[in-house]
Nucleic acid binder design. Sequence first.
DNA 1: CGATGGTTTGAGATATATCAAACCTCGTGG
DNA 2: CCACGAGGTTTGATATATCTCAAACCATCG
Lengths: 232, 232
Amino acid sequence: MISCDTCVVRNRAICSSLDGDEIKALNAIGRRRTLTPGESLMWEGEDSVLVANVIEGVLKLSTGTEDGREQIVGVVYPSDFIGRPFGSTSGHGVTALTEARVCVFSRKDFDAFAREHPSLEHKLLQRTLAELDRTRRWMLLLGRKSASEKVASFLLEMSERLVEPGCIETPGQPLRKFALPFSRQQVADVLGLTIETVSRQFTRLKADGLIDLPSRREVIIVDREGLAAEAG
Amino acid sequence: MISCDTCVVRNRAICSSLDGDEIKALNAIGRRRTLTPGESLMWEGEDSVLVANVIEGVLKLSTGTEDGREQIVGVVYPSDFIGRPFGSTSGHGVTALTEARVCVFSRKDFDAFAREHPSLEHKLLQRTLAELDRTRRWMLLLGRKSASEKVASFLLEMSERLVEPGCIETPGQPLRKFALPFSRQQVADVLGLTIETVSRQFTRLKADGLIDLPSRREVIIVDREGLAAEAG
DNA sequence: CGATGGTTTGAGATATATCAAACCTCGTGG
DNA sequence: CCACGAGGTTTGATATATCTCAAACCATCG
């Protein structure tokens, strides 16, 4: 029997709005699930049957065109909420980038539960508003920034979002060194570029001494100032 | 003294969640405001002091870079909600594209009211979720579509969103003919293109017989099928 | 060790941006 | 009523960032 008491995101996810009895009720309709890298939790255009909380790992939200072009429209981290409550279809697929653990609910069960718990809906609203803000900021990047600005912005955002939030009180410094949860192709799909352009920008930023790349997936931000300038 | 009873969006905006007494209370903390084309209701980065409902007209949400590049990150229509409740700053400016009427609230007053009326927060959540869906779909366009696909998609979306929703029951056909609330430059700022590229795509679509352009601001969709094919 | 999948590098093609000029449209004032 | 001016738009010529195609490279894993 799983329990929310020991859940590492208990105090950060939307669950934090619930008291002991309530969380017990929510626990009763949810279940844990583990995902391996590349495994999908839902697919674009599919009926919205599930929603979930991310406990551990990083997942991508993505859409594509008929002819196979792909765009990553969101990236979610521990404590983030996944899925489309109160809606019929999910507009994007959800796929694990790393090993991931999620807390899954039937959408209908969750909808009903949420409607009876305004404080939960309030948390969900806050999260959704914040995500909308972030998404709109990303539109500026997609529509108006150059390749080098895109890559620099991306690396800075990564260094900020990958911090393990040991405690909400201490927001934590952005990371100097981190492991990218993305392949080069996936970075390209986030930024609306090709894999070759992303690769060239990485090597250029390295040549310019702004970053270092110990291995394919590792990034060290050597000159954060300079990188920020590059990000436009 | 204004009244919500006669408000044309009373049954579509988030207000539709409230009963007679509640709407009276909401009415008491709101006021009407008229905007002329080009007039702004809020600015990027500014403290989030206002929120509002759109009663009439079309407004753009936009951000920009230091060096003056602009990106329109959203377009709002009658019954849509504007502003950032439960947050400190608004991430984008809000500017009227046409004559517009809005119902304005102090953000703090609205926040307090919303927290006491879960049904209102629920409506707001629904709207925010829908807007997030739409915004993410737009990211695919910005990141992965060609100029012609962008323009074609844009015209189709316009023809769908500009329908006057006389009644919620009858969603209404997309329009064959409509007046663009955007200048060419603004279309460019929506699509992440330059004004010249937008202009060329318009003339090409016209030359190909997919659309007609009686005047600068008017569009007729001649071949919707063809335009949809062009939209990718 | 050799095969495999992802990544980097290179050379060339192309869509879109940039710069510049001509062109409407509409309001204003003579 | 017409000429003028201003702002927005279209069209043209050229530049360039990014894409495309292709080959070399490198890590990982059997």
